[in-house]
């Protein structure tokens, strides 16, 4: 073997990673970090969920899936799970409508559009704790803004309690929507900007009204953004702890005690680590199922609509030439 051949061989081993090998090396590096920092705690959490811990006796006893059963069928956990679902559902609906609405408005031409685009991002930039402060200022019954503004108009009665036991969770979802919707707005704005103006013009020539233009031109192009917003808001709503903890701490009573708050109390108030861990898995499983379901449903549909959109574009191009 000549020296030159040896050099070539050496190069083929060192500098000659193929592109997939190179990418895989990076990804495995990053994932390894994640596996250690997430899978290990998760495994530990799973182990905890199979054990009944008694802090006073400092004992730990293997109980199998008993605590999972308790977490599933205990009334307190069930009620918290339902509250989490309600909170997520209201947040998702409000966020979707609001962020799409804001995106459609910000996609119009009007003076000051650039400034407004910058401004609407601000609620997203502030923390959940500060969001809680602001909405407390809005909703406080004795001196808050809503009552201060609405009482003189006779819309609400004296000292109306907004965060009452029927509506507190709803208003938490409103506050959460205020915080999270700007993110959705920017996903929608980015999608709206990819729609060729020609399509709107063509639709207008075909005498399509505002609603039919939205349905046939806008919607197919933003379908993927809808998916993103659905997933992001759902996941964030199920994860949400900070806002509820800072604003109502689960009250009044336990009416806003969503699952993350209950798990927090199991852990730090009652030291029921096993039950807390088992309940955590319920939360994880629901959130994962929803996220995966969205993706499966929407990606199947987006592929179809992409093909349809491409065909429409081709047809329009063929007509205009």
């Amino acid at each position: 073997m000549t020296a030159l051949q040896r050099v070539a061989l050496w190069r083929s081993r060192s500098g000659g990673l193929t592109d997939p090998q190179f990418a895989l090396a990076i990804v495995i590096g990053v994932l390894l970090f994640h596996v250690i920092i997430i899978i290990v705690p998760l495994a530990y959490s799973f182990w905890l969920s199979l054990h009944e811990t008694n802090v006073i006796l400092r004992s730990r006893e293997y109980v199998g899936f008993d605590l999972w059963g308790e977490a599933l069928f205990e009334e307190e956990t069930q009620s918290a799970t339902l509250k989490s679902l309600y909170f997520a559902a209201v947040s998702v609906v409000l966020s979707l409508v609001l962020s799409l609405g804001m995106a459609l408005v910000l996609n119009q031409e009007f003076p000051g559009r650039g400034i407004l685009r910058a401004l609407i991002l601000l609620p997203w930039a502030v923390s959940e704790v500060v969001t809680a402060t602001m909405w407390t200022v809005m909703l406080e019954p004795s001196w808050g803004f809503f009552n201060g503004a609405l009482q003189p108009l006779g819309i609400v009665g004296e000292g109306h309690v907004w965060l009452n036991k029927d509506w507190a969770l709803f208003w938490l979802a409103v506050a959460f929507t205020w915080h999270i919707a700007p993110l959705g707005t920017f996903f929608f704005l980015a999608a709206l900007q990819t729609i060729p103006q020609d399509l709107y013009n063509a639709a207008r020539i075909d005498r399509a009204g505002v609603i039919s233009r939205f349905y046939h031109v806008t919607l197919p192009h933003i379908r993927y953004a809808v998916l993103i917003v659905l997933v992001v808001v759902t996941v964030e709503a199920f994860r949400q702890f900070d806002l509820v903890f800072a604003m109502t701490s689960g009250g009044p009573g336990t009416t806003t005690q969503i699952l993350p708050l209950l798990i927090f109390r199991y852990n730090f108030q009652f030291s029921q680590y096993g039950l807390a861990s088992a309940s955590s898995f319920i939360l994880i499983i629901i959130a994962t199922i929803l996220a995966v379901a969205y993706f499966v449903l929407m990606t199947r549909r987006t592929k179809q609509t992409r093909v349809a959109a491409a065909q429409r574009r081709a047809a329009i191009a063929a007509e205009s030439s």
Partner: peptide, 22 residues
């Protein structure tokens, strides 16, 4: 790109496994 099969030489030296920067 790497050929699926066959040889490439530049200046008489085999290069299939030499990255572009070399």
């Amino acid at each position: 790109e790497r050929p699926t099969a066959g040889h490439i030489s530049i200046g008489g030296e085999r290069v299939e496994h030499v990255p572009p920067d070399k």
